[in-house]
Simulated scan of single mutants.
Amino acid sequence: MPRLPGLSKNLSAFLTTITVSEIGRPLMAVSDEGYNVIVGSTVERPYLFKSYATHPMRYNPAVKSDAAGAYQFMGRYWFYYKRALALTSFEPYEQDRIAICLIRECKAKEAVEAGDFGQAIHLCRSRWASLPGAGYGQHENTLDFLAKAYTDAGGVVA
């Protein structure tokens, strides 16, 4: 699923797991694997953006968010990461780069690479509201559900 080349099997599977958690496989199937999804989308009513030139910045008052993309990045953080990572667009591979940066910020990359899946999810829960223990008051997926998504994507649990 990730579009950034050269990723390890576990990092690629972990990125896919985040997208499955945030977007869900049904919505991934009716979009560009989630990369063009705007928060508030459903399979029946997908809100998709057409241009990857920049973060779409479409605020959804029903959910009080402007999250977008496969990893549901908030618009307010887009400009920081655009500058910090010298991003040229919101293309899928650039979204992958931001997600990897967030994983590193959470000090979870080593756990991801080592296949310490539960620890990696625990460390990243502050960045993605759908992860167990995130505490944002939104739907949180179970660790078992996410572990299946991870192994289905080719990840290896140590």
Rank of each mutant, 00 (worst) to 15 (best):
A108W: 14
P46T: 04
A111R: 09
C106V: 08
V30S: 05
S31H: 09
Y71R: 01
P46N: 08
P92D: 00
L102A: 07
E44V: 05
A86L: 09
T42I: 13
S31T: 10
P61Q: 06
A86R: 12
A62E: 10
E94L: 04
A53H: 00
A114M: 07
E94W: 06
E110A: 14
Y77F: 05
P61S: 07
A86Q: 08
I38L: 09
G75D: 10
M57G: 09
Y47R: 13
V37L: 13
C101P: 00
P61I: 05
F90V: 05
Y59P: 01
F49V: 05
L48P: 07
M57V: 02
S31M: 11
S31R: 10
E91I: 00
K64T: 13
E113L: 14
A53M: 03
S41N: 02
S51R: 01
Y52L: 02
D96A: 09
E91G: 05
K64N: 15
G69P: 02
C101H: 11
I38Y: 06
Q72A: 06
S89A: 03
D116I: 07
T54G: 02
I98R: 04
Y47I: 11
V30W: 01
A114V: 00
P46S: 07
G75I: 07
P61N: 06
G34V: 11
V37S: 12
V112Y: 15
M74S: 11
Y80N: 08
